[in-house]
């Protein structure tokens, strides 16, 4: 565990707290893409199947359970909560997320490091996480004025990915035989998807005005 990895995980955790806080405190999920949240739920389920058969550390196991729990809570609020579900902007959340799932599955079947059930599902989760933010980014563009909490949520998610890249650089330079090309390439693509958002987020923050993605 290094400081970049820890900071990345905590930023990821914070992003989920911010999103849950927004939903619970304002009883609204305006501007939030349910499709992205459902993709994250799929990502966590397929990646953390290893909770059942491998143990790395208490830290890892607790975080996995927290990520799974928060992802499903968010989906529950957006789809089933009697007040919150009416605030979901269905007509702005039109990205065809099933294509992302299908594409990630095909890619995982073609490019993986071992052709076993759990390894293919784990690889699928890596590919799907890389593109899971796309419905949310498209929705931000269509929403117009983006409220602070939603903007901060996406910003924190992007920060988390950036910190993971620093973590990989650190691990590569300090650990022997540490090599995970699939994760690195997917992670760099994932982080690059945030570039546009980061540009407008920082620009608007600098000019002290409400976030708008043109």
């Amino acid at each position: 565990m290094n400081v970049f990895r820890l900071a990345g995980d905590l930023t990821h955790l914070l992003s989920l707290v911010v999103l849950l806080l927004k939903i619970v405190a304002t009883k609204s999920c305006r501007g939030v893409s349910a499709k992205t949240q459902e993709l994250y739920a799929i990502v966590f389920v397929t990646r953390y199947l290893d909770l059942l058969f491998s143990f790395v550390s208490l830290y890892n196991s607790v975080m996995k359970v927290v990520f799974l729990g928060s992802a499903f809570s968010i989906v529950y609020f957006m789809r089933y909560h009697k007040v919150v579900r009416h605030t979901y902007d269905r007509e702005l959340d039109t990205f065809r997320s099933s294509f992302l799932v299908a594409g990630s599955m095909v890619l995982a079947l073609l490019i993986n490091s071992k052709y076993t059930f759990f390894e293919v599902l784990w690889t699928f989760s890596i590919y799907l996480e890389a593109v899971a933010i796309l419905p949310q980014l498209v929705m931000l563009q269509r929403t117009g004025n983006i409220d602070n909490l939603t903007g901060n949520y996406v910003f924190l998610l992007g920060m988390y990915r950036g910190l993971y890249i620093l973590n990989w650089i650190y691990r590569y330079s300090t650990e022997r035989r540490y090599w995970q090309m699939i994760v690195w390439v997917s992670g760099i693509i994932q982080t690059a998807l945030y570039a546009d958002f980061f540009y407008y987020y920082l620009k608007c923050w600098n000019e002290n005005r409400t976030l708008v993605i043109p």
Partner: peptide, 10 residues
């Protein structure tokens, strides 16, 4: 091995 392939990350 688990650690070497980075599966100790989240």
């Amino acid at each position: 091995d688990y650690m070497e392939t980075g599966k100790d990350e989240l």
